[in-house]
Amino acid sequence: MNALDVTLWVVAPYVALTIFVLGHVWRYRYDKFGWTTRSSQMYESRLLRIGSPLFHFGILVVALGHVGGLVIPKSWTEAVGVSEHAYHLTAVVFGTVAGICTVGGLAILVYRRRTVGPVFTATTRNDKLMYALLALTIVLGLAATVVANIVGGGYDYRTTISPWFRSVFYLQPDGEPMAGAPILFKLHALSALVLFSVWPFTRLVHMLTAPVGYLTRPYIVYRSRDDQAGSRPPRRGWEPAGRP
């Protein structure tokens, strides 16, 4: 493992993770008002109604696939009787379908963003950078899967990439297996690291506040005006006094 490998597969992941975590904390504390999906549905909904669900549901399945492939060790799936062949088949089929949905949805959304006047006007430079990185990561990921399975006879990333991925979280980073992975997988991982480091500063933050709590909370929310008067907690010493 040379210095470049150490930088890419040992240092960079921690840099990206740190920026990801601290960036979100910082953004949440200082920019709650900017924490939004910034939906453009008011401007255009015909294309959005096809593209947005296609992309979002696609990427959710892709994310689940990543959890299955990267987080769960190969030994566990084999212990419950899932052979490498069975796993691989499922992963490739689901992954390809979800990947194509995601890319197709993204293509519709990007097309919409570029061609629908009001939507394009509402697109910031930050959005453009985010779209480029997101598209790059997704396309590289899909390309890696497709190329490995069509050109090669399939690539068992669960013996190389997954151990590296987990080792980062064990705090015993081991770049060795990653250094030997095919170039497309490497590029995919690298672009993902860049994406994660800009994530907290883009509109992608809306993902972290996915409203799953809605399923369990009571319908009507009551709040007292005393709970918090302003948009931020009062400074020390200026907490509102109790009722007379």
Binding site: T209, P211, G213, Y214, R217, V221, Y222, R223, S224
Partner: peptide
Amino acid sequence: SGAMYKRS
């Protein structure tokens, strides 16, 4: 998100 509320 539970962002809307009725003031008690």
